[in-house]
Structure formats: structure tokens, C-alpha cells
């Protein structure tokens, strides 16, 4: 359950940054991304899957959230 900092890059994509692992990836898709909720399964551009319980209302980025490793 790593702490992940989510921020927007210049292009407006969401970046997924794990400080401990020094890993920074772009988020490819988020399961639910509506005006009410944000979360569910998150897929990164490197193909790895992460999970977070949907948050409502959606968080303001940048922010730090706790993710679970999705099953691979």
C-alpha cells in the first residue's frame, strides 16, 4: 500500500509518483473519472495496475493518496 503523489504534468496528464520507489509514470486510464467520483482501478503507461477505492468528490491534484497494488 504505497503512498502515491498524483500531480498533473504540463500536458495535463496525471503523473503517478511513488517517492519511496522513485517511480514516476503517467496514468493511462482511471476506471471512474467523473465529476462526482474518482478512483477504482488505475492503469499506468508501463502496464502496471493499481487500485484505490473511489473517492467522492474527486480529489484536488496534486495530492497524496494510498494505493493498493492491483492484481497482475
Amino acid at each position: 500500500m504505497p503512498n502515491v503523489m498524483i500531480r498533473k504534468n504540463d500536458a495535463g496528464d496525471l503523473l503517478f509518483y511513488v517517492a519511496k520507489k522513485d517511480m514516476e509514470e503517467t496514468i493511462a486510464s482511471v476506471e471512474t473519472d467523473t465529476s462526482e467520483t474518482w478512483g477504482g482501478e488505475v492503469v499506468l503507461t508501463d502496464g502496471s495496475r493499481w487500485y484505490i477505492d473511489p473517492i467522492s468528490p474527486p480529489p484536488v491534484f496534486p495530492t497524496t493518496l494510498r494505493f493498493k497494488r492491483g492484481d497482475e
Binding site: 503523489m5 500531480r7 509518483y17 517517492a19 496534486p62 495530492t63 497524496t64
Partner: peptide, 9 residues
């Protein structure tokens, strides 16, 4: 970069 990220958040 660590402190910059922190201040951004």
C-alpha cells in the same frame, strides 16, 4: 525535486 513536490502539494 522532493521538496518542490511537497510544496506543490
Amino acid at each position: 525535486n522532493y521538496i518542490s513536490r511537497f510544496m506543490e502539494e
